[in-house]
């Protein structure tokens, strides 16, 4: 088992929601916990915390990613764990008929979701792996995907991005072990988070809860605990672990 004490763990989108919960649980393991996120009030509040290292980084911009990874390695000497957590939830059908007539999926939203949820993980992993190799660090890459990767109606961009992330998980799980780096993904179901409530219609959400055998939404603490357990398990590689209360069986 990988002992996380003193290991440098980097979480993208770590200033709120599931990312922050993963950070809290990594701190409990005495890991050096590093957050990459964009500026927000929550981000600024975390800058006052003495137990965290917080870096302002737009992970959709490869140049910023490269510079920030360099800053982390200069500060801490290494990167041991990368959690590609950043993500935005966006729901819209490809085509719909409403009061205003025919409505098509907005292409700029497609680009935004793909860029944030998929391209960011590619940039981050590319540069983090380079840092791991340079410093000869055995590493772990975790991708936070979603059960939507199976293809959720009304979520073209989100499902495609998450499916792409699952594909990358399998590619990296085959390519990287030779360097001592393993990769796995965690696919949460619907969680009781602010972003879920904002992005998913309340009626749909209630209907989803009825379909979950455990009859409730997941908690971020439960997902985060699962992520940390996976990081610690040295034999876990290439798998997408679903944690959804049994929604998909």
């Amino acid at each position: 088992m990988l002992a996380l004490k003193g290991k440098v763990c980097l979480v993208t989108g770590g200033a709120s929601g599931l990312g922050l919960e993963i950070i809290e649980q990594l701190l409990r393991e005495e890991a050096v916990s590093v957050i990459f996120d964009i500026e927000s009030e929550g981000f600024r509040a975390l800058q006052n915390r003495p137990d965290l290292a917080v870096f302002k980084c737009d992970v959709t911009d490869e140049e910023q990613v490269a510079n920030s990874i360099k800053a982390v390695t200069e500060q801490f000497g290494q990167i041991d764990v990368l959690v590609n957590n950043v993500g935005i939830l966006y729901s819209a059908p490809l085509i719909s008929f409403g009061g205003g007539g025919l409505k098509l999926h907005d292409s700029s939203e497609w680009q935004r979701v793909i860029s944030t949820n998929l391209s960011s993980a590619f940039y981050m992993t590319k540069h983090a792996v380079q840092a791991m190799l340079t410093r000869r660090t055995k590493g772990v890459i975790v991708n936070i995907t979603s059960i939507s990767a199976r293809g959720n109606a009304g979520q073209s961009a989100y499902s495609a991005a998450k499916a792409g992330l699952e594909a990358l998980t399998k590619v990296w799980a085959k390519e990287l072990p030779v360097f001592g780096i393993r990769c796995f993904a965690v696919a949460p179901g619907f969680c009781d988070t602010e972003s879920t409530h904002v992005a998913v219609n309340e009626t749909i959400l209630q209907d989803t809860i009825k379909r979950v055998p455990l009859k409730r939404l997941g908690k971020t603490a439960e997902i985060a605990a699962f992520v940390v357990a996976g990081i610690k398990n040295d034999y876990l590689n290439g798998k997408v672990l679903e944690i959804d209360g049994g929604l998909v069986i």
Binding site: E41, A45, N48
Partner: peptide, 27 residues
């Protein structure tokens, strides 16, 4: 009514010094 955490933080920033703004919000 529905309000995002960041909105609440923004309003608080106008009322309290930074060190008094809660580390965490639980709705």
């Amino acid at each position: 009514s529905d309000t995002e955490e960041d909105e609440i933080r923004k309003v608080l920033k106008g009322l309290l010094p930074a060190y008094m703004i809660p580390t965490k919000f639980s709705f």
